[in-house]
Amino acid sequence: IYPNALSPEQFVITLIEAEPPNVLLMNRPKKPFTEASMMMSLTKLADKELVHMIGWAKKIPGFVELSLFDQVRLLESCWLEILMVGLMWRSIEHPGKLIFAADLILDRDEGKCVEGILEIFDMLLATTSRLRDLKLQHKEYLCLKAMILLNANMFPLAMGSNDPDSSVKLRHLLNAITDALVWVIAKSGLPYRQQSNRLANLLMLLSHVRHASNKGMEHLLSMRCKNVVPVYDLLLEMLNANTLQDH
């Protein structure tokens, strides 16, 4: 399905159908958490969610038409942002709590057992609180999440992409997802003058998601370097890629 062949409404319906299932931790560790047991729970959950994230990305109209190089670069750049914005959506009705999974719900102070994680919990809770104040709608959330993926990387993408028209396709995709978000906001019945203000407020929050993700990546790397938690498979690959990318 080519994105510009879809109406904004059809694009949003496709995003609804693309939504990944909510993942469960399954074997929940006993409380109180230790630094190791909390990090182990969070990384196990992240690894499971990452597999579903790839299935989700492939269902976004036009994503698999991008070059494989571009698909990898986009996911490599924003995977933690996507996990975090999903966490915020699940937590939006639960002030002071982070709903990592239905069987992994953490109060803010439970983060005290992991060195350096409270700062990140507070960023996540603050951004979630702002989304709650804005009364973020589900369809707006779906558009923002897809926008994070499609907007995840630019300059190296343009230069490095071995498929020049992939960048053109990506720009079409970004326009299509922007049209979809504008359409969702317009459908909400807000007075026209307030629609652009709402769009700006939602887009401004994406920089906070990116900031929390950068902090989270640093923290996860430090936890791994200190051998607090073993990291395997896809999560290890994505984490290493960020390390290499920084260098």
């Binding site: 579903h52 790839i54 299935g55 492939k58 698999v64 990898v72 490599e76 994505m238 290493n240 290499l244």
Partner: peptide, 23 residues
């Protein structure tokens, strides 16, 4: 090639069948 090296699992999951297979 460095990107492919860095992302063996990701490449495989992106190229494998339907999204539901991946999940």
């Amino acid at each position: 090639s460095s990107l492919t090296e860095r992302h063996k699992i990701l490449h495989r999951l992106l190229q494998e069948g339907s999204p539901s297979d991946i999940s």
